[in-house]
């Protein structure tokens, strides 16, 4: 089965997330270790909801508002988004 291309990779999403989260936390993107839980940097639960809103807007993708709670690191969240984007593309392509 062909894997639909979405233009987004784990790397590009990791970069986007680190940059966005750095803005929330007033830090440099390089300071965000992709394997450290975001809550440890002080990203609170409402900011995590807000982040999911940003993702929906920027990627035109519907995700659970709690996605950043369930995938609590940059890596985990990037991996989840790649899957969601691929599923979305497959749905559009197959329709």
């Amino acid at each position: 089965m062909p894997v639909p291309t979405t233009g987004h990779t784990t790397e590009s999403l990791t970069t986007w997330l680190a940059e966005r989260i750095a803005l929330y936390l007033k830090r440099q993107p390089a300071e965000i270790d992709p394997d450290v839980p975001l809550a440890e940097y002080g990203l609170d639960s409402v900011a995590a909801l807000s982040l999911c809103g940003d993702i929906e807007d920027d990627f035109d993708l519907v995700i659970e508002p709690t996605a950043a709670w369930d995938y609590p690191t940059v890596h985990a969240l990037a991996g989840h988004l790649v899957e969601e984007l691929a599923a979305e593309a497959a749905k559009d392509g197959g329709a």
């Binding site: 966005r20 803005l23 936390l25 007033k26 609170d44 409402v46 900011a47 807000s50 940003d54």
Partner: peptide, 8 residues
């Protein structure tokens, strides 16, 4: 609103 102004 900047992202930092969307947190507690």
């Amino acid at each position: 609103l900047a992202p930092e102004d969307r947190t507690a």
